[in-house]
Nucleic acid binder design. Sequence first.
DNA 1: TTGTAAGCGTTATCAG
DNA 2: CTGATAACGCTTACAA
Lengths: 345, 345
Amino acid sequence: MSETTDRTTAKRRSATIIDVAKAANVAVGTVSRYLNGQTIRRSNREQIETAIHDLGYRRNAAAASIRTDLTHMIGFLVPTFDEFHARMLEHLARSVRQTGRALITYCHGGDPRIVAEALDFFAAQRVDALVMDGTAEVYHRVDDLITHDVPIIFYNNDVKGLAADRVMVENQKASYRVVKHLIDLGHQRIGMLTGNPANSSAVERLLGYEQALTEHGLPIEPVLTVRGNWVYEGGYQATKRLMQLETPPTAIFAANYNMAMGALGWFKESGLRVPNDISLVSFDDVDIFRLFDAGITAVAQPVARIADTITDILVERLADPSGSHNRTTVLECDIILRGSTRRLT
Amino acid sequence: MSETTDRTTAKRRSATIIDVAKAANVAVGTVSRYLNGQTIRRSNREQIETAIHDLGYRRNAAAASIRTDLTHMIGFLVPTFDEFHARMLEHLARSVRQTGRALITYCHGGDPRIVAEALDFFAAQRVDALVMDGTAEVYHRVDDLITHDVPIIFYNNDVKGLAADRVMVENQKASYRVVKHLIDLGHQRIGMLTGNPANSSAVERLLGYEQALTEHGLPIEPVLTVRGNWVYEGGYQATKRLMQLETPPTAIFAANYNMAMGALGWFKESGLRVPNDISLVSFDDVDIFRLFDAGITAVAQPVARIADTITDILVERLADPSGSHNRTTVLECDIILRGSTRRLT
DNA sequence: TTGTAAGCGTTATCAG
DNA sequence: CTGATAACGCTTACAA
C-alpha cells in the first residue's frame, strides 16, 4: 500500500505544466496540446505521459479557465433539498456529468440575502450557466448575470420577463385532471392546500383546481383554499383549518408532497382514515406514497425528463452562445392512481 | 425594470480589475486591496465603488485562486442523494456557506469509474477540501489527493488507513440498543437487513446486532441476516426471504431507511401488519416514519451535528494546513421509540 | 508537429 | 496608504 507520503515538507508546490514540459523535454505548448487531446508525436506523448505520472501532475482548472473563459461548472440554486429537488439534483448531476461538467450547489432556504449571495458567488466563479428554481425577488440580480452572458435555465418556478430558458411542467393541466378525478368520484366540496403564491407553480396549480371546479359547475369557495406554503407544518395547519370548517371538505388536494404529509399527519392525530373519512390527492409522487394504507394518488412530475431537457438546452446554449434561445419547454405529468380517494355515494 | 440590456455585441469582455482601476484613477493594487477588505483612503474607496458599480465589475474567482491557491470550494462526494445524504447536503451546504465557501457536488451512484472521475475533477478544480462518504475502492486516488495536501473528511463510512479526518456515528452502539429493545420485548428470532458489507457502517451495524443477540444468550443464525445493499429493492427481497423461512423472525432490524421501506413494501403486499404480525425497527429516522400506522421505531442520526462537526474540522484544517489533524469524531445517535414493535407474550 | 512568447485577471512584493 | 510590476499556470497565436 502506498505509504502516506512524506508530509514534512511544509507546502509542496504541486507540479505545473512547465515542470512536465521540462521533465519530458518538450515545450509547454506541446504539453498543453497533449492535455487538450490534440495530436502529438508519439514519442513525445509517451514522455509526457510518464512525466505526468512521475510528477503527479494535475491540471489546474482555474488557470485554464482564466484563459478560455470556461469553467465547466454549472450553478444549481434551489430553495431546499426536499424530495423533489433532491431527485432533480441527482438526475441533473448525472446528465450534466456526462457532458463533462459538474454542479455547484447552493441552497437558499427562501432567504433573499442568501439568494443574492449565491448569485454573486456564481458570478465570481464564472459558472458556465445557472440552473435555478425561479424566485421572484431575484429579478435584477439574475438579469445582471444574463447581461454577463451567463445562460439561465429556470425550472419548477418561472420568473417572467427575463431572457432565459425554461423547463416547466403542466401544472395547471395536471392539477385540473387530478381534481377532476375527485369530482368524477362525486366530491363536491374539495379543499386545497396551496403553495406560496409568489411561485408560479403555486398559482398554476391553484388555477387548475379552480378550473376543474368551475367547469363542473362547482362554486369556488375561498375558505376551501388554504395556504400551506409548501411545507409540512403549513400543510398540517391548513388541513386542520379545513377540517374544522363548519362543513369540512370531503377531499383535499395538496399542491406538493410536504403539505400532503402534513395533511396525513393531522389526519393521523385526529383519527381520520384515508380514504374512508377523507380523500387525499397530491402533487409530486414519491415512492413512499405506495406504502400508505391505500397508497396516495398523486401527480408524478417527470423528474428525469426535466433534468435531461435542462441538460440538452445547456449543451445547445453553451455550444452556441450567440444564439438567443429563449425557449420554454413544458412537460406533461402523469397521474398515479392509488387508493387514497373514495367514491362518494 | 432594467431593460434586457443590449446583447447585440457578440461577446462583451467583462470588466476586469484593470478597467476598474482606470475608471477610478487608482492602481490595480489599490483596487485589489479594496476588494480584499483592506483599508483604503476614503476618497479612493468611493471612486472604486462607483467604478465597480458602473462597470458591473465582478471579481474573477479563478484568477484569484491561481495566485492564492484557494478556491473556497469544498468537494462533496456521495453515492446517492437519498434521504440521508440529501439532509446531509442541506445542512452541510448551510454551515459551509457561513464560512464563505460553497460545495461542488458529485454523485457517483456506486460506479468506481465515476468516483475516479469525481476525484480527478476535484483535483483539477483545486477544491480546498473534500468531504465524502467513504468507499473502499478509492484508497489510492484519495491518497493521491492527500499527497497534494487536500484535507479529506470522511463521514458515514470510513476508509481505513488514510490520513484523513472522520466524522462518524456510533453505529454499533445504536444498533445494539435498538436490537436490545426488541429483545427486551421478548423477541428471540430477529432478522436483519444488512447494507453493503464493503461499507464500514454496514459492518458496524451488523456487529451491534450480533452483540445484542450474544449478550442476551441468543444464537447468531446466518439465515437471519440477509444482505439488502442499502436499497429499497434489496430490502424488499431480503424481507421476503426472511419471512419465507421455515421459522420466520418475529422482528426485523433494517440497517437503513431504504431497506426499511422495502420491508414495509413487502409487508403491505403480503397483508402483514406492523406491529401486529411483525415488528420493525430501522436505522435512519425520517419524518414520514411518524405517519405510518403506528410509527416506525428508528435510530436517528444527528445529521445537523455531523454537518456542523465536519465544518468545524474543515475550518480548523484550512486555517492551519501544516498541522496534521487526523481526528475521528464519533457522534451518538438517538433512538426514537414509536409503535412499530410489540411485546411478545 | 513543435517551440516561443504574449496574454488571461488576480494577488503580492517592494519602493515610495 | 499607494503605484508599478512580477508572478501564478495555462492556452493560443505565430513562426519555424
